[in-house]
């Protein structure tokens, strides 16, 4: 397992290098720079040029590239003038918000999607199956930002059950944190319930005709226990694959949901940086995103080994 992890991390190095090169290339290709954002919407061209010079944004690209990679080798992602802090620090401060949002969203999706998929498999071609699959399709089809706004309107404005936005750190007030996170995580989860439920159903249907399931039933095990203990365990690998992909999707969905619910996460940081052309933050954000995807893929591989003894033996 350690060897697998080592190989994956080695493979990540060229991936991150390519991502860094692409992100730096974007700084040269995309028009506009931070000076315009800093100067404000009605600043004159000469005022913007003045700030550009003051910040050194008019330095030659190669010089900027050398400085950035030099910093990267020292573990320094650069400094954001707009945030007035280091990029690494800015990302680390916001990462818990985004990871917890994506994790919570995926958690909700699994908690709903897996039992739904098992229920559909158990009642295949009967109304619970059709209802579950229809509902999951509806969830999959709803844009998460629209669902987010709908939840704000119904749960926040009309029912006053939960706040309409904002964020309370977990360490400061766990209950406040939970109240802030339920709606955005729910909006994110809705899009992932469908794929997880459908994959669980499909994998479970493949397993349910197996000899060991027939044996379990022959032993007199109740049907819910057969599904919970034996069918689910055998169907877990493809479900893990979908969940791994789903984490990536929820991470990207978090970019939008953070905007809707005013959550101070990495997504909002990166979107703000893109709109303001804060290139150190964009480059740092892209590197981090690539690293998180590599890490999640690695985690899924490790979970495969945990879930499937045959893979453990092969490895």
């Amino acid at each position: 397992m350690l060897r697998l992890a080592g190989v994956r991390l080695l493979v990540a190095v060229p991936v991150l290098l390519v991502v860094s090169l692409v992100s730096f290339g974007l700084t040269l290709l995309v028009p506009g720079d931070m000076a315009a954002s800093l100067a404000g919407s009605t600043a004159s061209a000469s005022e913007v040029a003045h700030i550009r010079t003051e910040l050194g944004l008019d330095r030659p690209p190669l010089e900027r590239m050398a400085a950035w990679y030099g910093g990267l080798l020292r573990g320094d992602l650069g400094r954001s003038v707009l945030l007035n802090e280091g990029v690494g620090q800015a990302i680390v401060e916001r990462l818990p918000v985004t990871l917890s949002l994506a994790g919570l969203g995926l958690g909700f999706a699994c908690l709903i999607g897996v039992p739904t998929g098992l229920l559909a498999a158990a009642k295949v071609r009967r109304w619970p199956d059709q209802a579950a699959m229809g509902a999951s399709l509806v969830g999959l089809s709803l844009p998460d930002f629209w669902l987010g706004l709908l939840l704000v309107w119904i749960v926040g404005v009309k029912l006053h059950w939960l706040p309409t936005g904002g964020f309370v750190p977990l360490t400061q007030d766990p209950l406040g944190w939970a109240r802030c996170m339920i709606l955005p995580a729910g909006a994110l989860a809705a899009t992932q319930v469908g794929p997880i439920a459908r994959m669980t159903r499909s994998a479970a249907l493949e397993v349910v005709a197996s000899d060991f399931i027939r044996t379990a039933r022959a032993k007199g095990l109740a049907e819910p226990r057969v599904f919970a203990r034996h069918v689910l365990a055998a169907a877990l690998v493809p479900v893990l694959t979908v969940a791994g992909i789903g984490f990536g999707v929820t991470l990207s969905g978090a970019l939008v949901i953070e905007q809707v619910f005013s959550l101070p996460g990495v997504g909002r940081l990166v979107i703000g940086a893109v709109l303001a052309r804060d290139w150190p933050v964009i480059q740092g954000g892209l590197l981090l995103t690539a690293f998180v995807f590599v890490a999640v893929n690695l985690l899924v591989d490790v979970l495969y080994l945990w879930a499937d003894p045959r893979l453990r033996e092969q490895s």
């Binding site: 706004l149 704000v152 309107w153 404005v157 309409t164 936005g165 904002g166 905007q259």
Partner: peptide, 11 residues
């Protein structure tokens, strides 16, 4: 700082 207009109004 709330980028979403609907969320500001709801607040």
């Amino acid at each position: 700082f709330m980028p979403e207009g609907g969320a500001r109004t709801a607040g």
